Simulated assay, not measured.
Amino acid sequence: MLSRVALRSGASKQTACTALVARGSASDVATHDQKTFARPVRGEPGKVRLGFIPEEWFQFFHSKTGVTGPYTFGVGLATYLCSKEIYVMEHEYYSGLSLLVMVYVAHVKFGPKLAAWLDKEVEATENEWNEGRNQTVKALEDAIEGEKTEQWRAQGQELLIQAKKENVLLQLEAAYRERLMYAYTEVKRRLDYQLEKSNVERRLAQKHMVDWIVSNVTKAITPDQEKQALDRCIADLASLARK
């Protein structure tokens, strides 16, 4: 029994170690896959100034010319283009100015609401796209949990089979001991019978021997001897009475 328990404990420890190693390797592989095949993240627009000039433009000039450098460069460049008539101010230019004013007014008045609505639509679209992925991930997680549950049940079945085997061994042991007890009882009963038989035979032989001796002694006594013995007994009684 102790050897079976030791073997079973060793097997369970080995199984547990194997499961831990497999689980650790699986987690390492999953972490490596997450780092190697990371999902792309939707980029956010960078910070701008004056509504359309990137912040990096001002940072580039700030390290060389200070705070006013980019503004001075922009004004000087515009003045140069206009003074040299590189940029010609024709009638379309004034139409563009009016259009720019309209765009600025629309940006100031309707820009935040439009941006909020567009952000909401983008988030709704992104959530809709991610919904299928989340459902797939959840289904796979449920499948993993179900697989772990089935593995746990399989381990329970192994323990149950081992318990049944031990139960069968105990039943065989009980049957073996019962048959040993039956054989012991039967042998003892037969030996007791032989002992009682020999005792009865010895008692019968002794009784027969005593009866035979008594009968032979009785037959050997003659009437004269019986009378003499009787007279001697009476004389003895009389002498005892005088004392």
Results as ranks from 00 to 15, higher is better:
residue 84 K to C: 01
residue 119 D to P: 04
residue 108 V to L: 10
residue 120 K to E: 03
residue 113 K to I: 05
residue 87 Y to W: 13
residue 85 E to Q: 14
residue 86 I to E: 08
residue 89 M to T: 11
residue 97 L to W: 02
residue 111 G to L: 03
residue 92 E to H: 14
residue 95 S to A: 12
residue 111 G to M: 00
residue 121 E to A: 02
residue 88 V to R: 15
residue 99 L to M: 15
residue 107 H to M: 11
residue 85 E to F: 04
residue 109 K to S: 06
residue 90 E to L: 02
residue 117 W to G: 02
residue 85 E to Y: 06
residue 90 E to C: 10
residue 111 G to V: 01
residue 94 Y to T: 02
residue 121 E to G: 04
residue 84 K to T: 10
residue 99 L to I: 10
residue 114 L to C: 10
residue 92 E to P: 03
residue 113 K to E: 01
residue 89 M to E: 14
residue 116 A to P: 00
residue 87 Y to E: 15
residue 88 V to T: 12
residue 100 L to G: 07
residue 85 E to T: 08
residue 121 E to K: 13
residue 118 L to W: 14
residue 94 Y to L: 05
residue 107 H to L: 04
residue 93 Y to T: 05
residue 97 L to G: 02
residue 85 E to P: 04
residue 105 V to K: 07
residue 93 Y to L: 01
residue 88 V to Q: 12
residue 116 A to D: 08
residue 120 K to D: 08
residue 94 Y to A: 06
residue 119 D to H: 05
residue 99 L to G: 12
residue 91 H to N: 11
residue 117 W to V: 05
residue 96 G to M: 11
residue 109 K to W: 03
residue 115 A to T: 14
residue 111 G to W: 01
residue 119 D to W: 05
residue 98 S to I: 09
residue 102 M to R: 15
residue 116 A to T: 07
residue 118 L to I: 05
residue 94 Y to W: 13
residue 117 W to Y: 02
residue 113 K to P: 00
residue 109 K to A: 11
residue 91 H to L: 09
residue 112 P to C: 02
residue 97 L to Y: 01
residue 90 E to V: 04
residue 121 E to L: 03
residue 97 L to H: 00
residue 118 L to Q: 15
residue 98 S to P: 05
residue 92 E to Q: 14
residue 84 K to I: 06
residue 96 G to Y: 05
residue 87 Y to H: 12
residue 108 V to C: 11
residue 91 H to I: 04
residue 94 Y to C: 04
residue 110 F to H: 08
residue 91 H to V: 04
residue 98 S to N: 12
residue 113 K to V: 07
residue 94 Y to V: 06
residue 111 G to T: 00
residue 99 L to R: 15
residue 108 V to K: 15
residue 117 W to P: 00
residue 95 S to G: 11
residue 96 G to N: 12
residue 120 K to R: 14
residue 108 V to F: 06
residue 101 V to R: 09
residue 104 Y to G: 02
residue 106 A to E: 14
residue 88 V to G: 08
residue 86 I to H: 09
residue 118 L to S: 13
residue 97 L to C: 02
residue 101 V to L: 08
residue 85 E to M: 10
residue 101 V to D: 03
residue 116 A to K: 10
residue 94 Y to D: 04
residue 112 P to L: 05
residue 91 H to F: 02
residue 104 Y to E: 03
residue 118 L to K: 15
residue 101 V to W: 01
residue 112 P to S: 00
residue 89 M to H: 12
residue 114 L to V: 07
residue 111 G to A: 05
residue 87 Y to P: 00
residue 102 M to T: 15
residue 99 L to K: 13
residue 109 K to T: 07
residue 86 I to L: 11
residue 111 G to F: 01
residue 112 P to I: 04
residue 88 V to M: 09
residue 105 V to A: 07
residue 118 L to Y: 11
residue 95 S to I: 09
residue 119 D to N: 11
residue 107 H to P: 05
residue 118 L to M: 15
residue 111 G to I: 04
residue 114 L to S: 13
residue 117 W to L: 07
residue 113 K to C: 02
residue 84 K to Y: 08
residue 94 Y to S: 07
